[in-house]
Computed example of a mutant assay.
Amino acid sequence: MSSTNWEITFDGITYECINCGYCCSCKDWRIYLSYFDTLKLKEYEEYIEEIKEDITGLGFTKRLKTNNRGCVLLNSNNLCNIQLKKGYEFKPIMCKLFPFSFMVKWNGDLLLIIKHYCNGIKKGKCDDKIIKHAIECCEELYLDEMDEIINMGMEHSTKTRLNNNTLISWEEREELGRYIFDSSNLEELSEKCKEVLNIDIFKDMKKLNHDSEIFIKNEEEIIRYLGELNRREHFRKLSFKKEIYYLLNIGKELSKYSDIFKGEGVIDSKILNYHK
């Protein structure tokens, strides 16, 4: 059992592997190897390369090589040659972790996130075993660096900005975010924004998207996803008011997609940082 406090940010979303090979495509990311990965992959040294410069800043020194399809160990059936020949336990930790990752919460707790650009993302409840496995992979991959990651990622001030003129506690900001995005429709969300921040966004949102069939179909999921982004704390360096405006603009962008999960994948690919 982990001694670190973990918070799940993606209630209502799960995934199922569809054997598409996207996680092995190394599109905008690379598969870095822990020290223990390299020990397990002694027979695969020809597929591993040294890193001249660790752009991750996390002490990685080796990674898997790539070709025009992605990872060199991906076969023609979108299957991993390591897993086929040696077994799942021999796969690099970073491979086993996908599509999950984590961020550091303002108080030093850890936020487990799911990457929506995985093609297997869908609506539903994520199995507890999957979540447990993802957390174990995170802790194993960053075992030696976790304390430093937490210290660098958490906030060391007790206050955050509600707007340009008002400071509130981080606990208050978190509670306000949960309150606003615990809304069943846009009208309720707009009323809460007016109540909390004295901003009127309903007319603007309705004029752009609310009358479209696409938005009506996906309204609940759009609000859920915006709440997920709020819980991830991507934009906590902004004032809470500016963060809400930023998230609502993301909602407008999402309303253009008939396939809502494809839209979320596009947004996630823009927000999350990749290391090539």
Rank of each mutant, 00 (worst) to 15 (best):
T158F: 00
T158M: 06
K159H: 02
K159G: 00
R161N: 14
R161F: 12
L162G: 04
L162R: 07
L162M: 13
N163E: 06
N164I: 06
N164R: 15
N164Q: 14
N165T: 15
N165P: 02
T166F: 06
T166C: 09
T166K: 14
T166Q: 13
L167I: 04
L167S: 09
L167W: 05
I168K: 04
I168T: 02
S169V: 05
S169M: 12
S169N: 11
W170E: 03
W170H: 14
E171T: 12
E171Y: 09
E171S: 12
E172A: 12
E172C: 08
R173V: 03
R173G: 06
E174F: 13
E174L: 11
E174S: 13
E174Y: 13
E174H: 08
E175H: 06
E175G: 03
L176T: 03
G177D: 11
G177V: 04
G177R: 15
G177Q: 13
R178H: 09
Y179R: 10
Y179T: 10
Y179K: 10
Y179F: 14
I180G: 03
I180L: 15
I180T: 04
F181M: 02
F181T: 02
F181L: 01
D182R: 04
D182W: 00
S183L: 11
S183F: 10
S183G: 07
S184L: 06
N185H: 10
N185W: 03
N185G: 03
N185P: 01
L186Y: 07
E187Q: 14
E188M: 10
E188P: 00
L189V: 08
L189W: 09
E191S: 07
E191Q: 07
E191K: 13
K192A: 00
C193L: 12
